[in-house]
Design a protein around this nucleic acid. Sequence first.
DNA 1: TGTACATCAGTGAACGCGCGTTCACTGATGTAC
DNA 2: TGTACATCAGTGAACGCGCGTTCACTGATGTAC
Lengths: 211, 211
Amino acid sequence: MTVRRTISTVSTGDGSSRRSPARRGEGERLRGEIVDAALRLLAETGNTATLSLRAVAREVGVAATSIYLHFPDIDALLLEVKTQLSERLARTECMAADAAGPDPFDRLLAMAHGYVRFGIEEPGLYHVIFSSPTLSPKYLQMGSYIGREAFERVRQEVAALVGEQTSHLVTTHFWTALHGLVVLRTTRTRFPWPELDTEVEDLTRRLVGRT
Amino acid sequence: MTVRRTISTVSTGDGSSRRSPARRGEGERLRGEIVDAALRLLAETGNTATLSLRAVAREVGVAATSIYLHFPDIDALLLEVKTQLSERLARTECMAADAAGPDPFDRLLAMAHGYVRFGIEEPGLYHVIFSSPTLSPKYLQMGSYIGREAFERVRQEVAALVGEQTSHLVTTHFWTALHGLVVLRTTRTRFPWPELDTEVEDLTRRLVGRT
DNA sequence: TGTACATCAGTGAACGCGCGTTCACTGATGTAC
DNA sequence: TGTACATCAGTGAACGCGCGTTCACTGATGTAC
């Protein structure tokens, strides 16, 4: 005996329940729920190497095998997750710059603050973006191009401040320094960190030579 | 029937072999082999979360239960591994500074190069040093003080260059920037990285204001 | 309008594997008498 | 000097667990006739 529930599960009389299938053509709904579940789990651990297919299925509330309906393996799911996260980070940076007005230094500083804020507010997700070594080789190429446009946007502001010639070098400094800042701040919580805004601004000034 | 081998195993007639116990008082020998095996495995994966007790035992060539003779759990083993690695990293930095002579800028630059070289030559081990979140709370306190003396040594050189007052801030920049540099270089291999020595030296100059 | 069938979306049992941990054990080496 | 015994260093079988993956299945929804 099966009884239809109002929302999206079917009770089977004993304790177990069964998800009622999506309408025809709405199969993608579960796909989205899978990605969201993976994001929730990764936000806690920050470690892609320990994410399991069964744990994701459990978090969604679905049979483990149902994951295969939407992803061939867990690396495909991770690629999707990373792509979404990179876009989120890039968007954060972008919005920060747009809110800052036309001055290149103000824009650069705003981007730095945006980047750092994202990483510190969501340390688990931030770590996921940069944990490529776990990906199997077949997804490596695609993953490695993530973040290029964001780098290029920063480079343009940097170029306005230090010149086109050294802009690649200085933008690289920026990227490595902000990345290290986020990773170490969220990892070495007992270290006597300087006040965050002071640290980001002083770092930015020094890197572009505005002391 | 058991036959004594010349080195350190005993053959049991069939394919299996048995390690001949260490002499009385030499029980610490296996402890060292366990740490070395863990280091070999971690050098490949760089991920403490996926290191298993059984894999370590297999690498040593010993029964899984033998690990318990020397470590209460895997976190204790990891703490030992991390402590040894931090000391290695600090020693590398130290030696680089000593080889550089008395000038503070030269010493600072040498330390930076030493730090970065260590990280790039042994990316897996470098990652292990900074992967604290995996440690269970009971070992967290101890782990977090690792590296303090190394920071202090760098700070003294920085103080000679930028003054005592801002030395903590600038040394923090140094640490985060070099950490990010190592992590991203070993992780994002497809990025068009600048020439290594140029990058480190330019970064150092900018951080201490010697452009 | 009715009905047989195809398709879509998801399930659940079963497999073999590696894992951490327990337990009683083995066998060589040293020591007390 | 001989011998019984304690101790040290390490083993191996067994447990229950979570994992990825396979396979045949279920049952609602749409479609052809």
